[in-house]
Design a protein around this nucleic acid. Structure first.
Lengths: 238, 238
DNA sequence: GAGTAAATTTACTGGTGAGTAAGATTACGA
DNA sequence: TCGTAATCTTACTCACCAGTAAATTTACTC
């Protein structure tokens, strides 16, 4: 066959190669079922190299986590930078998120789906990453709404609520995108923004929608609309 | 305590006891790190019993999955039944969901977080359960909007989009609830409904919100999509 | 071309956990 | 009372996999 001898490669590069493969394998199999042997083999290397460079399986996973999280956050912030209004920054951030996931599906799987049932350190890392994203989004929300709505005392709690809903929706829409390859990240973003933009303002300004009273529905009755009209009229001050 | 001899128990009951424990352990540790030995021990039973009744670790997990999914769907549908308008049904369904998660956190963890990186059969089961939930929600959305908006041609695709966003948001808000124990499921539901109700109509009626044109908007999409046939990239109708 | 540090390998250990064989014990009806 | 079917246990096997010891080879420097 080919006389292709396995060339030696400096540590930095090898590390990245290992992490590249590891992200794929972790995404494919999940943390525990993934074996270091397989990762080493796919990386065209022997197992002790992995341990020499990344310390342990957990260390390897942490490295994957950190690198991919950094990339995602960078994409998010990079898109939002240099954009004037907070509304547009939110748009840009979401758009970048969808584009990122569309292009680096493995990264997203590792970051999100796989990182639950792991040992302390990892769980902490993931939780921190998630908190960071939440904070970022919550900030955009707060700023965006603050500007659009004027000096309204926007409680952090409210912004946090909106951020959670937004991130969760975006995350879930990731699956939807997978089944609709024709959809561009921009289009998905537009739909999502359209879906929540007005509502965000409502929530942050205090709740407006209430479940129409009566009608064996759960909960107390604020008794706002007696006849339970199908669509509670919203203050859509666009 | 001491003199208490271990009574024999008929199969049906033992199975439920085993599943009870398994749900806890799977939720706590995750699928792979969970050991059948531990589950057996906590169930006050020896390992072969588990294999006799549930066939395998995978069978055990599947049993957990099926039971908890059934419970969740039952709660969801039970709440929506006997409610007149679709809008209220959606409200009732979401409310029931939040109440369920608040009360059976382990069930939700098993159903959602743990069920990703597993062998064929399990992945399929989970995917099916998720699809069922999505379909349910999408149906409510379509009906609710259809009634509120009159005879509008609501594409299934649009309803599916909204359903994904809704379910994802609800899922994520689960975490938010954990950090806000004072919040009742009803209140969370109200906020979420307030946030998306108007937007849903917008999305289903065709997109309204568009990123304001020009303004140095995010253009970080250099990679060629110039000839994209499916989605007109810059349909920024002002 | 030595000399040296970095890159890399072969060949192991030890522990853990899924799954099972073979049999012991209890309830329960005829 | 006795049989028998269901319930339950002890005591294994076997494979897989994280992690390591010790050496071996390559590249780079002087």
């Amino acid at each position: 066959m080919s006389g292709e001898r396995r060339r030696r490669v400096p540590r930095r590069i090898r590390e990245q190669q290992i992490i590249d493969v590891a992200v794929q394998v972790f995404a494919r199999r999940g943390y525990h079922p993934a074996s270091v042997d397989e990762i080493a083999e796919l990386a065209g290397i022997s197992k002790p190299m992995v341990y020499l460079y990344l310390d342990s399986k957990e260390g390897l996973f942490l490295a994957c986590l950190r690198r991919e999280a950094e990339r995602l956050v960078a994409a998010f912030q990079g898109a939002a930078r240099d954009v004037r209004t907070p509304e547009l920054r939110l748009w840009a951030g979401l758009s970048a998120f969808f584009a990122f996931v569309a292009e680096h599906r493995d990264s997203w799987v590792v970051l999100h789906r796989q990182a639950s049932q792991l040992s302390e350190a990892i769980t902490a890392e993931v939780a921190q990453a998630r908190r960071a994203v939440m904070a970022e989004v919550a900030g955009l929300v707060r700023d965006g709404i603050g500007e659009a709505l004027g000096p309204v005392p926007v409680a952090d709690e409210e912004a946090d609520f909106v951020a959670h809903a937004l991130v969760g929706a975006a995350d879930s829409l990731t699956d939807w995108m997978e089944r609709h390859p024709g959809e561009s990240p921009e289009r998905v973003t537009r739909r999502l923004m359209n879906m929540v933009w007005v509502g965000m303002r409502n929530v942050l300004a205090g709740e407006i929608w209430t479940p129409p009273a009566g009608s064996g529905a759960p909960g107390p009755e604020p008794a706002g609309t007696p006849g339970a009209p199908a669509a509670p009229e919203h203050s859509v001050q666009e």
